[in-house]
Write a protein that binds this DNA or RNA. Structure first.
Length: 678
DNA sequence: CTTTCAATAAACACAC
DNA sequence: GGTGTGTTTATTGAAA
């Protein structure tokens, strides 16, 4: 099947529809064949998907971490239930709330569902990042609730034992029971919240759940007790203990993220909910929790608050202190459809990833092994990595049945690694696009082109993802990567096709674009020689036009400039890159934290405005280089074809001094340019 | 809403 | 005449 990919790369369709036909012929879906989509709709779809790809990168990468946490949580939960449940079954069945079961239930989200989620493209990468943090916070909270519950149960058992022996202290016991009840209530409400999130998600169309799909969360939650029952019990108990519970320490009781876990002796206070919360059937758990976090010490640990900025997805409102943040949170991010929807998405993702985690790990391992071996392998035999094969498979699958049946995890046809049907498939599927894009691709995310290309080299080579850079940037990169800083047009072509699978199709289109850019931009200087002509880069010219095209997420830029906050947003971009491509192998730290080297390099490059990277493959990960150092002085001959521009050492009009085979895997490598030039 | 920028398409010229 | 290369213009869409 991946032959199809490569054949289509060889194919030079005159139009996108031609390509579509080609693909559709290989597709099993008659339905898709019936849709003669207009070219421009394809274009927009393509660009949507290309952008989406970056979201997906982040999405998958971060979610893996969450899934890991989830697994931990599950283990703990098993411990809890295994240890505690048998003892207490007969005594207080009403208190047998399966802690966090709802969250852990492996509700299978199909790749299609995920794809649907992702295709909505409602969330920017940054939003996803924050969302994931939010999700992690939720998980953490549940975990801690769980632990606390465990401790409460232990305490209760202890007291029950004491009572059995001494037959005293019913009050204490009741109090503990009350605490547990309250705790369970909180759990329940949390899960209700989650369910509500999911529902609103569905309502918004963020998530489409097929009828046949397993129902999502929260059914297991009430396994031992139905909500109304809990409510009733809660009312009863709280009415009995109102006095002591509502007195002083609401915060300590609710401060689950800190106190309950850290202190071995859980607060004896009640886990009472906010009074106003209990009046309303829809208790918002986070409201009391947020308030409880009003301690300064907690502010920095709040996942939605950091560096004076609200980290709610897409918000980033500045809050001077934690209190203002809380106000902001409660006012701006109330329990509405949007926030709940986002939360739901993450829940689903995490649950899916939980199932996928083991497989992905294995796959990652295989990929690492595989790619490490072939890192410098020429592409004479462009054996499609598993990535590519998965692209192809997923493409066919998704085209064949966009929504019908989930990918079954049983696709072990791949020789080395199983072709996963999870995020990676979604990634490649959603970004698998055909046809030209009329889009302004201006160095997305502010990730420097050389870094991005270097980090995602393998990915770009194998996945038909449009690099998020302009033609001008790419051409420049191609030229600068060459030893002589000059390339013939054909060599530029070859660089494009070699480095980017995306440019293995629609050759007429993008080659025209390349020529157009070469001619149009003053930064590209044509130098003639006997053999023909080569193109060079006038860096001054290039830098002149660069400030205008700084686009990307403004918040990203903003955050990147604050040295403190650069970790999160830039991280998003880097993680996005790393998660999507096959490179995490080179940066094994990527599972937890992106490599600081790359980070620093990226930041440095970005803050320096623009700097050249020559052989980005090796040099990009080496920090500590100044922009000037990056410029190549070799074989540079000042020849101000544009005299008004060639004002500095950056003028890179070079001589036609070409070393023959700087490019081993190129078709046209045997075009040594003569030394002399005119 | 306007401007700017980039992508795309296409016509044309020229050389081989 | 075909092809590759290079230039130019126009259109379109996205973003500022």
């Amino acid at each position: 099947m991946f032959q199809c990919v490569f054949s289509s790369s060889v194919l030079q369709p005159h139009s996108t529809s031609c390509l579509f036909k080609h693909l559709f012929y290989h597709s099993a879906t008659p339905a898709s064949q019936k849709q003669p989509e207009p070219i421009y709709s394809k274009k927009t779809e393509i660009q949507r998907q290309t952008v989406r790809a970056h979201s997906v990168k982040l999405f998958i990468f971060s979610a893996l971490q969450v899934a890991r946490q989830l697994l931990l949580q599950q283990q703990q939960q098993q411990q809890v239930s295994g240890l505690k449940s048998p003892k207490r079954n007969d005594k207080q069945p009403a208190l047998q709330v399966p802690v966090s079961v709802a969250m852990m239930t492996p509700q299978v989200i199909t790749p299609q569902q995920m794809q649907q989620i992702l295709q909505q493209q409602v969330l920017s990468p940054q939003q996803l990042q924050v969302l994931l943090q939010q999700q992690q916070a939720l998980m953490l909270q549940q975990q801690q609730l769980q632990e606390f519950y465990k401790k409460q149960q232990e305490q209760l058992q202890l007291q029950l034992l004491q009572q059995q022996h001494a037959g005293k202290q019913p009050k204490e016991q009741q109090q503990v029971a009350t605490q547990q009840l309250a705790f369970q209530q909180q759990l329940l409400q949390m899960q209700q919240l989650q369910q509500q999130h999911l529902l609103s998600l569905q309502r918004q169309g963020l998530l489409t759940i097929q009828p046949g799909q397993p129902a999502l969360p929260l059914q297991p939650l009430a396994q031992g007790m139905i909500p109304t029952e809990l409510q009733q019990l809660w009312k009863e108990v709280t009415s009995a203990h109102t006095a002591e519970e509502t007195t002083g320490n609401n915060h300590s009781s609710l401060d689950l993220t800190t106190t309950c876990v850290s202190s071995s002796a859980p607060s004896k206070t009640s886990l009472i909910m906010n009074p106003h919360a209990s009046t309303n059937g829809q208790l918002s758990v986070h409201t009391p929790k947020r308030e409880s976090l009003s301690h300064e010490e907690h502010s920095h640990s709040h996942p939605l608050y950091g560096h004076g900025v609200c980290k709610w997805p897409g918000c980033e409102a500045v809050c001077e202190d934690f209190q203002s943040f809380l106000k902001h949170l409660n006012s701006e991010h109330a329990l509405d459809d949007r926030s709940t929807a986002q939360c739901r998405v993450q829940m689903q993702v995490v649950q899916q990833l939980e199932l996928q985690l083991a497989k992905d790990k294995e796959r990652l391992q295989a990929m690492m092994t595989h790619l490490h071996v072939k890192s410098t392998e020429p592409k004479a035999a462009p054996q499609p990595l598993n990535l590519v094969s998965s692209v192809t498979l997923s493409k066919s699958a998704s085209e064949a049945s966009p929504q019908s049946l989930p990918h079954t995890p049983t696709t072990p046809t791949a020789p080395i690694t199983p072709v996963t049907q999870g995020p990676s498939v979604i990634t490649t599927t959603s970004m698998h696009t055909v046809g030209p894009i009329r889009r302004r691709y201006s160095d997305k995310y502010n990730v420097p082109i050389s870094s991005d290309i270097a980090q995602n080299q393998e990915f770009y080579k194998n996945a038909e993802v449009r690099p998020p850079f302009t033609y001008a940037s790419l051409i420049r990169q191609a030229i600068l990567e060459s030893p002589e800083k000059q390339l013939t047009l054909n060599e530029i072509y070859n660089w494009f096709t070699r480095m980017f699978a995306y440019f293995r199709r629609n050759a007429a289109t993008w080659k025209n674009a390349v020529r157009h850019n070469l001619s149009l931009h003053k930064c590209f200087v044509r130098v003639e020689n006997v053999k023909g002509a080569v193109w060079t880069v006038d860096e001054v010219e290039f830098q002149k036009r660069r400030p205008q095209k700084i686009s990307g997420n403004p918040s990203l830029i903003k955050n990147m400039q604050s040295s403190h906050a650069y970790c999160t947003p830039l991280n998003a971009a880097l993680q996005a890159s790393m998660a999507e491509n096959s490179i995490p192998l080179y940066t094994t730290a990527s599972m937890g934290n992106p490599t600081l080297g790359n980070l620093a390099s990226a930041i440095r490059e970005e803050l320096n405005g623009a700097m050249e990277h020559t052989n980005s493959n090796e040099s990009d990960s080496s920090p500590g280089r100044s922009p000037m150092q990056a410029v190549h002085p070799v074989h540079v001959k000042e020849e101000p074809l544009d005299p008004e521009e060639a004002e500095g050492p950056l003028s890179l009009v070079t001589t036609a001094n070409h070393s023959p085979d700087f490019d081993h895997d190129r078709d046209y490598e045997d075009e040594p340019v003569n030394e002399d030039m005119e």
